[in-house]
Design a protein around this nucleic acid. Structure first.
Lengths: 193, 193
DNA sequence: CTAGGGTGTTACCGGTCTGTAACTTTCAGA
DNA sequence: TCTGAAAGTTACAGACCGGTAACACCCTAG
C-alpha cells in the first residue's frame, strides 16, 4: 500500500499534513474528510478525536501554513544577517519561486475566496495571519531604509497576491511572468526617492 | 412574496441573473441549483430545460459577467472619445470603485480558485476572457502613448487582481486601500520614461 | 376553439457529505 | 504480563447534492 505521507508519524500529524496538501490542490470544499483520512492512512473517527470539526481542521491547517511561511522569514535573516535590503531582494526571489510550476496560489487567500460565510472561524485567522505578514514586510522595507515603507510593502503585497491568483486564471505565462521585473523596479524607484 | 429578480422576464434570464448574483455572494460550490431556482421564482426542471448542467450554467454566468465588463470599456470610449490617456485614468477610477463596499472580488478569478479540476469547462472561458481583458488594457496603454505598454498593463492588472483578493482576506482597509495612489503613480512613472 | 410549446409540481434516484455510536484491535509502559 | 489509552473498523444517521421522470397547467398563435 502506498501512503504519500510518512508512515511513522502520529495520526494527528499525518492528517494535518495530508489535509494541507489536499486543501491546497483541490480546495477546501473540494475534498471531504473521508478522502483526507484515507490518504493519511487512517480513518474518520481518529480525525474527529483530534479535531472538533472539519472547520477546525481547516483552521489548524491555515495556522500550520502560516507557521511554515514564518520560518521563511527566519531564513532571510539567517542568510543575510543585518542586511535588510538583501533580505528584501531575497523576499522577491522567494516570491517568484511561488509563481513557478503549477502552484495553486496562496492557501489563505484561496480559503478567503472559498469560505464565504462571514462568521466562518477560518476568516479570523486568515485576517490575523495576513495582517502579520503585512507588518513583517512593512518592517523589512522600513529597516531597509525606504522612505514610504508602508506604500512599497502594500504595493509588493498586492503584486504578489495578484500574481498568485492570476496564475490560476491564465497560467504562468500571463502577467505574473513579469513579477520579478515589476518588484525590482519598484524597489529601485522607492529607493531613489 | 418577494423575488429579488424582475418578475416579468423569462425564466431563463431570471435564472441567469439570479445565479450570477448568488455565485458571486456565496461561491459556486456554496450554492445549489435548488436555491437558485427558488430565488429566481422558478423550479429545477425549468433550469435543466435551459442549461445542460450546473457546470454549463456557471459557464453562461461567466460569459454574462464578461459581457457586462465589456460594456464598461465602451463607456470609456463614449465618455472620452479618442482620448486614450483619459480612458486609462477612467479605468483606474472604475477599478477603484470595485474595491469599495463589500464586494467579493472578481467572479472569474474566484471561479478559477474554486474550480480546481483542470478540465472543468469554465476554465477555458476564464482564460479566454481574462486574456481578452489583458489585451484591451495593453492596447489602451499603447494607444495612450506609453512605451512599455505591456509591462504597465500587466502591472496594473496584477495590482487590481491583488487588491480584489486582498479585500476578501483583510478587508477594504488593507493594502487595497492604496490602489489608486499606486496605479496613478505607476502611470506617471511610465509616462516619464 | 384548439393545438402545442413553455412552464410548474411532485416525487424520486443515486451519490456524497459531515458527524456519531459501538465495538475491536494494537501497543507501549508499569 | 497486565492494563489502559490510542487507534482502527463497521455501520449508520440525517442532510444535501445534481439530475430525471411523469404529469398537470397555462397561455398564446393559428
Amino acid at each position: 500500500m502506498s501512503d504519500g505521507v510518512a508512515e511513522r508519524s502520529r495520526p494527528r500529524d499525518r492528517i494535518l499534513e495530508t489535509a494541507q496538501d489536499m486543501f491546497h490542490k483541490h480546495g477546501i470544499k473540494g475534498v471531504g474528510v473521508d478522502a483526507i483520512t484515507e490518504a493519511a492512512g487512517t480513518n474518520k473517527m481518529t480525525l474527529y478525536r483530534h479535531f472538533e470539526s472539519k472547520d477546525e481542521l481547516v483552521v489548524e491547517c491555515l495556522r500550520a501554513t502560516a507557521a511554515k511561511a514564518s520560518r521563511i522569514w527566519d531564513e532571510f535573516e539567517a542568510r543575510h544577517p543585518g542586511d535588510k535590503l538583501a533580505q528584501l531582494h531575497a523576499w522577491v526571489q522567494k516570491a517568484s519561486e511561488l509563481l513557478s510550476a503549477d502552484s495553486r496560489g496562496c492557501d489563505m487567500a484561496n480559503a478567503a475566496v472559498e469560505l464565504t460565510e462571514a462568521d466562518h472561524p477560518a476568516r479570523r485567522v486568515i485576517k490575523e495571519l495576513k495582517e502579520a505578514q503585512r507588518e513583517k514586510l512593512v518592517a523589512l522595507c522600513r529597516d531597509a531604509g525606504i522612505g514610504q515603507a508602508e506604500l512599497l510593502a502594500d504595493t509588493l503585497s498586492l503584486l504578489l497576491e495578484g500574481a498568485r491568483v492570476s496564475m490560476q486564471s491564465v497560467g504562468a505565462e500571463g502577467p505574473s511572468a513579469q513579477f520579478v521585473r515589476m518588484a525590482e523596479s519598484l524597489i529601485a524607484s522607492f529607493r531613489a526617492r
